[in-house]
Amino acid sequence: MLFCGINPGLMTAATGHHFARPGNRFWPVLHLSGFTPRLLKPAEQQELPAYGLGITNVVARATARADELSAEEYVEGGRLLTAKVTRWRPRWLAVVGVTAYRAAFGDRKAQVGPQERTIGDTRVWVLPNPSGLNAHWTAATMAEEYALLREAAGGTSDQGGSVSVTTPRS
């Protein structure tokens, strides 16, 4: 499973750890949904491959907010992400943020959940953005959605072969 954030926030850029801002709910939701047996801290992201999980971003440039990114950055990020997925061949790509997915892949009608698009044999799922700014999703409702993906992937996070992509600028 390769999780893909939108782009590094300023805290992530400063610390080198994905989803490092204290209000971000990625790490709690990852645990609540059953992907990890305990709540990991951003500084423990190197443990993700042990669970068959990897992490990257659509766009490498750090910003305070994702709405600072240009349409061109998203499209180029989608192209680069496709190349990464083609090279690493995870069984699943989980993009966290429907707006980012729509912009990166030119799919204006995409919704949270499984997508028809595949990248080679890699299936694609769009998850809610765990940013604290995405207030209409609670940690509990996000965890339910993340758990649907985990269950679709076979009920466990380790689906054979791990993807180790844990640098925020990868």
Rank of each mutant, 00 (worst) to 15 (best):
G132N: 03
I119T: 09
F105N: 08
F19M: 10
L39W: 09
R38N: 01
T15P: 00
R21I: 00
S33L: 04
A135E: 11
D67W: 09
L32D: 10
T12Y: 04
I6M: 12
V126Q: 12
T63L: 14
A14I: 00
P22A: 13
A152P: 07
V126G: 13
A50H: 09
T138D: 07
A71C: 00
G160K: 02
Q159F: 01
G106N: 08
L32F: 06
R108T: 11
L133M: 13
A71G: 12
A139H: 01
Y146E: 04
E73P: 05
N7I: 06
L30D: 08
S164Q: 13
V165K: 04
L133R: 15
A62P: 06
W125R: 02
Q115F: 07
M1H: 08
S164H: 12
G132P: 03
T15Q: 02
S33V: 02
H17S: 13
A64F: 12
R61S: 15
V163S: 10
L40P: 00
F105R: 11
L81W: 09
L40M: 10
V112L: 05
E116R: 14
W88K: 14
E145Q: 15
T122A: 13
F105C: 12
T99N: 12
T86M: 11
V112H: 07
F35M: 13
A62L: 02
H136N: 10
S70I: 00
A64C: 05
G160E: 05
T166F: 07
C4F: 01
R38P: 01
F26C: 11
V85R: 06
H31W: 14
E76N: 07
K84I: 12
S131T: 15
H17Y: 15
R108H: 12
A153S: 12
G16R: 04
L53Q: 00
L53K: 00
A147W: 00
G34D: 09
F105P: 06
V85C: 11
G54I: 00
E116H: 10
V29A: 12
N57S: 10
T82Y: 06
K41S: 15
V29Y: 11
G52Y: 01
E44T: 04
G120P: 02
G154E: 12
D67Q: 12
K41A: 15
G23W: 06
C4L: 06
V126I: 15
V126W: 09
P90I: 01
R65C: 08
N24C: 10
W88I: 11
H17C: 14
A104Q: 01
G113C: 00
E144V: 13
R108K: 13
R87C: 06
H136R: 15
N134W: 07
